[in-house]
């Protein structure tokens, strides 16, 4: 009997959806706009993080060591640097590893490989790659690295990428803030539109509601169709956003690849691998918003 009632309630709310079809369509368009802005916000966040990570990779400090250094002394130096507070990790790249990765990097360039062969020996020096724990303590790290005065050290590479990093962070943050403001605005508009739609729906069903009350329909039965309409709007809105978003992402993906040349930035893949999380959460959020808006409207207008 309960299931039967649920089915009838769903049937009523679908009838209501069709009867006010234009209002329904407008409601869904507004929901889609809200979802577009939320998803844009997400894309900005993802790209921002990707950029920051890309820059961070360049932030490592390399200490180049003398070519003939003994391995045991290098390892001693390595553990000494490791013990510094602001160091996350120290990676030792031996002469052999350096030449291997050099060869790998230039495997498509026979001239360089030929020159290397001609040289007859390994011209590269071993190095220590130091990853800082926190970008913000970069300066401190450099100071302490400079204090280490080991004869092993041939040269130090302290390129400061912090300015760039700060800029990227700044842009991402600003874009996120604008995106957040737009999203909030659209969510607010969504609430108002859904509220109004439900209000109109109730108004057009005044007679039905009056009869339902007169013949003893329970309160939840009278109200449920309008709450379910809210859920239907949310569901269709999310379906629409999926249909709209994917072509859009496929369209911008090649441009992203060009822009982030050399780094793995794949927004399409990000959406694919987080499909259920992203759209599930968006559905839940929209449904909740609609449900609450409907609840208020129903509470206010269904007293006939």
């Amino acid at each position: 009997m309960f299931l039967l009632s649920i089915l009838r309630v769903i049937k009523f709310s679908l009838q209501d959806f069709v009867r006010n079809i234009w209002l329904s369509v407008i409601t869904i368009i507004i929901i889609v706009l809200a979802l577009i802005s939320v998803n844009l916000l997400l894309v900005v966040k993802v790209l921002g993080t990707a950029t920051v990570n890309a820059v961070k990779e360049k932030v490592d400090i390399s200490l180049y060591l003398k070519s003939e250094s003994e391995e045991s002394r290098i390892l001693a130096l390595r553990s000494k640097i490791s013990s510094l507070g602001s160091v996350q990790e120290v990676i030792y790249i031996s002469k052999q590893e350096a030449i291997d990765s050099f060869r790998e990097k230039h495997k498509n360039n026979p001239e360089i490989l030929a020159a290397l062969l001609e040289l007859g020996r390994n011209p590269l020096s071993p190095s220590l790659v130091i990853k800082p724990k926190d970008i913000n303590n970069y300066e401190e790290l450099i100071v302490s690295l400079n204090k280490i005065d080991d004869q092993l050290i041939e040269s130090r590479n302290f390129d400061d990428h912090r300015a760039m990093l700060a800029k990227v962070n700044d842009i991402t943050e600003k874009a996120s803030r604008v995106g957040l403001a737009i999203s909030l605005l659209f969510i607010l508009i969504t609430i108002l539109v859904v509220y109004n739609t439900v209000r109109v729906a109730i108004y057009t069903h005044k007679r039905e509601i009056g009869i339902m009350k007169l013949v003893g329909a329970s309160n939840w039965f009278i109200r449920a169709p309008y709450l379910i309409s809210g859920i239907i709007y949310g569901f269709l809105g999310v379906v629409a956003i999926i249909i709209i978003l994917y072509p859009l992402l496929s369209f911008i993906q090649p441009y992203l690849e060009v822009f982030f040349y050399g780094f793995k930035v794949n927004i399409l893949e990000y959406y694919n691998s987080n499909f259920f999380t992203i759209f599930g959460l968006e559905f839940l959020a929209v449904t909740l918003v609609n449900f609450l808006a409907s609840l208020v409207a129903v509470g206010k207008y269904s007293k006939v």
Partner: peptide
């Protein structure tokens, strides 16, 4: 107070439907 889009029969049915009767 009848619903104009429903027949007389459906109008009477409506009263039972909305009360969850099978």
């Amino acid at each position: 107070k009848l619903l104009n889009r429903k027949t007389l029969f459906e109008n009477v049915c409506f009263a039972l439907q909305v009360c969850g009767e099978p």
